[in-house]
Every structure is written in C-alpha cells, then in structure tokens.
Design a protein around this nucleic acid. Sequence first.
DNA 1: TGGATTTGACCACT
DNA 2: AGTGGTCAAATCCA
Length: 365
Amino acid sequence: MGDWEKKKHLINELAEGRELAKQLQSHLNLACFPDETRQVLVQKIIASYEKALFVLNCSTVGTSPTPGGAATIGIKSESTPHLNGSPRSDQDSDPEHRNTGKSNPRWTKQVRVSPGIGLEGPLEDGFSWRKYGQKDILGAKHPRGYYRCTHRHVRDCLATKQVQRSNEDPTILEVTYRGSHVCNQSTDHPSIPSTSSPPPDQTHQNPTHRPPANQSEEELLMNYFRTGLKVLTNDLETTTHQVHTLTFPSSHFPSNSNVLINNPKNQFSPVQNNLAENFAPFLSPATSGTSYFSASPSGLNSFGGNSTSYYQNFQSDQLTEIISSSAATSGTNSPTIGLDFQFGNAGHEYFDTHFTFDHPHGFFP
DNA sequence: TGGATTTGACCACT
DNA sequence: AGTGGTCAAATCCA
C-alpha cells in the first residue's frame, strides 16, 4: 500500500468519524433542552475532523495519481463516503468534456435523508427532472440514476443530475448536478425559486449555460440555499421541535472559530437576524431551538458586521476568499470548493447536505 | 392518451 | 475490453 493509499484510507476514516460526530450531534438535539456545552463539544469534534481532513487534503492534492484533477478527489474525500473506497474514475473524467468538447460546470450535493425517503433522493429541488437512465456502477451497491431537465427539448435546457446512494451509508445520497438550468421554472412553480443552477460564478465561465439575464448571482446563490432547505422544510412539516444547523466547514477557511447561538425563544442575534432575513423562506422565525454555525472570523464579519446581506458578502467576498485560501494552502489551482449545509431537527429525520462545486480552471479571478 | 419510467443497446473514452 | 453516459423502444400509470 503506497503513501497515497494510506492517506486515502486515513481521509476516509476521518470522514467517517466526522459523520458519526454529526450524527451524535443530531442525537443530542433530541434532548428537550439543548445543552450548549455538549453542542460546543460536538462542534469542536467536527471542526477537528474538518481541520485534519483539510491538512490531509492539502498534503495529498497534487500528489494523487488519480486522473481528472486531484483537487476534486481531495475535497470530496473529505466528506464523501466513496462508493468503493477508490477514486471514481467516471465523474472525474468528466464525460461532459467528452460529449461537448467544452467544460461544463458540475457540482455535487450530498444529502442525508431518512431511511424512508425514496431512492430518488431530494426530488423537490425546485426543478422537474425526468429520469432517462439507470445503471449499475462498478463497486457500487446501488444503481446510479440519471436525470435530465424535463424541459430539455422544449427550452433546450441541458441541466442533468445523477443520484447515487452511498455504499457505507444508504441514507446518504450523492447528487451530482451538471450544466445550468436555462429554463426559468419560476413560471411553472410560482412557489419555488426560479432556479437551482450551479454556483453563480459558473455563469462567468460558461456563457453557453448562462442563466436568464434578469437573474442576479445573488438570486442564484440564494437558490442553492433554498434548494437544500426546501427539503428540510418539507421534512419538518411533521415535527414540532426543530433545530436548524448551518455549518460552514472550517476546512475551507484559513482559520476557524465556532459560534454557537442559542435561540431559546426566537430571540435572533444580529447574526441570526441577518440569516433570518435572507433565509426567511426556510429559517422559520417561529422555530425555537438552537441555531449555530462555524465560520472564520471574516465570515462572521460578513454575517453580522453590517446591513449588507449575508449572501451578498459570501458570494462576492467569501466565495472568492475560500477559493483563494484553498488554492494558496494547497499549492494548486484547486477547481473545487465545498459547502456543508446540515439541517437538523429534534426528530429522527434530518438532512445533511454537502455541496462540492467543480468548475474549470481559471473560473474564479 | 400523453407523459414518465424502465431497460437493453449503443457510443465514447481509457 | 471494460466502464460510464446516453438513447430509444417498450412499458407503466394517472
């Protein structure tokens, strides 16, 4: 077993440990009254794993013999339960490049669903998908489903997604989105945001998949949040006690600090007020419980420093900063960033999503 | 009956 | 040759 193999296994182990810690965290949330101390402890455990994974990723990125971009492998190893413990040759080879001859944005969202949820995963992501194929993947216990936008032919929308259930944890679905929606589904689903296209920055590099001109990048990013959180909202319809968790992985920040905000009676802090404003559709003010997140100090400034909305700061400053710091630390032009969104509640069901954005080199300034 | 799903076949790539 | 992605005919279903 080579050095890379050892590191890979270590990364997998750490990733699993982090997932377990997150599960423990969700179980702790079952208590009638959230224990702040325990929450902080769990959060530190998770942050520790994040740091360790980040260090490992930095040490392995650029040395991986895996085809198709080591950065992608590294980042995904951090939180992705690999299907068979080996790098996925298919997705990393990016068939879109083969088919179209040009780069196509791709981003992956890991979604943890309750065991009762169907195989298709987060069906309600604001878009209508039509399944066009299913295939058994080598080393995967579960088949991979292939979906494309229902309006592919009508509106020439080339967005596709793949849904793959994890081997290790069947409750984890890895949803890989490809291409941007050029169809504006807000007209079809008034209650649903207009789009859940790939990260807004992708539109810079992919003019052929540019979203409607009247859609701002802020709207696009907000839709990412809405997309995942909408799943949560649906799930929470059956629950009475709720705990919302927004986790921004410390692995993507140069330094880390954790912030725990107890919200016993809808008393939102300035940070939460900011969040509440911008996540109003899904972060219900009627919710009582604990909302917390981890972010860098600079991230906190963006959250509560002024009246500028969170996502605007994040999109224009933080996102770039994440990429810059990641690339600088790893010593590579990492084409991948990740965002974790963990949506927990006091019940047994919860969703835990991880976003991995792949984009062409030179995508960000 | 029209749209969605299933599934075997085909193609591109390594 | 092996594998993943897509196509398209058959089938299902509301």
